[in-house]
Design a protein around this nucleic acid. Structure first.
Length: 441
RNA sequence: GGCGCAUUCGUCUAGUGGCUAGGACACAGCCCUCUCAAGGCUGGUGCACGGGUUCGAUCCCCGUAUGCGCUGCCA
């Protein structure tokens, strides 16, 4: 059947995957999965063909990281290639000839322009509805250039030609193209080709509503790859921008999104990207990670900051990381959180120092040290009992001992469970660290 | 300027011609607790404005404002 859904993601290789592009790719992917259709990846590199290979690779990396696989395109093959516009010169020449044959183009100072039909063009958008564009006036809608004097092609022309050639049934793209659509429709007509269904999805803006550009925080997918985010969490968050399951769910399995997703239910309003919420959602996913995957990602996060884990026994590392699970939202937070396990030269938190290393706590810390030194077994339960007994002896609240002790052995006033962390660190290290800390009073 | 699209808490959103307009993030407070995180509870802020239509509009229509997009030999 020719009614099969064929969609495409057609980025220009800029060297990185933009978050807005990622969302466009995601919605195309979702629609393809939902309908059992085909997703085509096409690289629109008409402008500069110099760093295309490398820049395109960055696109693949970003898409694959998000789990957005394509059925046809670079590194996937397909019967409608090549999938780089820079390799489709013959196709464009052929289509240009068609326009020449029907007198729809003319030369203008070396460039070639397409002559618009002076008429009203109706675009029936799946998301935006029926919109009428008045193209009757050459003043407000001058004919458009489709080829530059140097022979390079303009986006509008090659984009439409490729969509025809690749038998694209649904063009799902950013709303910034909505106003270009009547031009594209004119091209389809000139080629006597049936236009696809158009679906213009809202844009992603910064939190303050301004347009998200290259420089903005979180604009590149690399922010998330390098920042210790989980792909399924970022993908989940992206699904929620311009679409909703309508039942108050925030964390939602991708299979479920595929099942529920439809173009008609996509919003028409631009959405602001809220990194805080994306990070929160990531935390939800991190908490539910399997032990193995958590350990693997945690190790990676530490190693990329230069921690040499091979120096420590595997069981030590595993136990140490285990105490951090559920305590942070993104993996880039982990090294600072658990660095004390792997480095004796940690910094002391200045506020903690001012608050807890005060004269009356010195004696308390000494008492804790003595209690710990006397222990035959250095496990969490014993440590807790010992610390509580010491507190009772001194007639102070447990917290009065917990805080100085934590600060002494970790340098921080927040962290994993104290008793477990002490057990993992071991008696020798703990006593040595308390001794060192005592000298700071 | 012209054309197009949009407008529910700060942000993402649910929602209906009649409801105390719901949820989530963020924020504040309390509880829990060895800290933090998580969890529980509580709190505040919202239907852009002005006209209609209607017994009644957040919801329908028209304007205005604001935002965004297009208006390139960028994509």
């Amino acid at each position: 059947m020719s009614s099969a859904v064929r969609v495409r993601f057609a980025p220009s290789p800029t060297g990185y995957l933009h978050i807005g592009g990622a969302r466009t790719a995601l919605f195309n992917w979702l629609y393809a999965k939902h309908t059992g259709g085909t997703l085509v990846l096409r690289v629109e590199d008409t402008d500069r063909a110099r760093n295309t290979e490398e820049a395109a690779r960055a696109l693949y990396v970003g898409l694959r990281w998000l789990g957005l696989d394509w059925d046809e395109g670079p590194e996937a093959g397909g019967n409608f290639g090549p999938y780089f516009q820079s390799e489709r010169e013959a196709v464009y020449q052929n289509y240009l000839d068609k326009l020449r044959a029907t007198d729809r183009v003319y030369d203008d100072a070396g460039s070639i322009r397409f002559r618009f039909a002076r008429e009203k063009v109706v675009v029936d958008d799946v998301i935006c509805g029926r919109i009428e564009f008045d193209m009757t006036s050459p003043e407000t809608n001058p004919d458009m250039t489709i080829r530059r004097p140097d022979g390079s092609w303009i986006f509008h022309f090659v984009n439409v030609v490729d969509d025809i050639e690749m038998k694209i049934s649904h063009v799902i793209r950013g709303e910034d193209h909505l106003s270009n659509t009547p031009k594209h429709v004119q091209l389809y007509r000139a080629f006597e080709a049936a236009p696809p269904r158009f679906a213009h999805i809202p844009l992603i803006l910064n939190k303050d509503g301004s347009k998200m550009s290259k420089r903005d925080q979180g604009a590149s997918i690399n922010t998330y790859i390098d920042g210790g985010y989980l792909p399924e969490a970022v993908r989940n968050y992206l699904c929620l921008l311009g679409w909703s399951p309508k039942d108050n769910r925030e964390k939602i399995e991708i299979e479920e999104v595929v099942r529920l997703f439809d173009l008609e239910k996509v919003h028409r309003k631009n959405a602001s990207f809220d990194l805080d919420k994306c990070t929160w959602l990531n935390g939800e996913y991190v908490r539910e990670l399997s032990d193995d995957r958590f350990q693997k990602l945690a190790r990676q996060a530490l190693e990329r900051t230069g921690v040499d884990l091979s120096f420590f026994p595997p069981e030590y590392v595993r136990a140490a990381l285990e105490t951090c699970k559920g305590k942070f939202k993104i993996f880039s937070e982990l090294p600072a959180y658990c660095g004390f396990y792997f480095n004796d030269e940690f910094e002391f938190n200045p506020e903690g120092l001012a608050k807890h290393f005060v004269p009356e706590n010195k004696g308390r810390l000494v008492a804790v040290r003595e209690a710990f030194a006397a222990l035959a077994h250095f496990d969490a339960a014993t440590l807790e009992a010992a610390l509580k007994a010491t507190a009772a002896q001194l007639d102070v609240k447990v917290g009065a001992l917990v805080h100085p002790t934590r600060l002494a052995v970790t340098g921080s006033n927040a962290g994993p469970s104290l008793y477990h962390l002490l057990e993992i660190l071991g008696k020798e290290k703990v006593l040595a660290r308390i001794d060192g800390a005592l000298r700071r009073f």
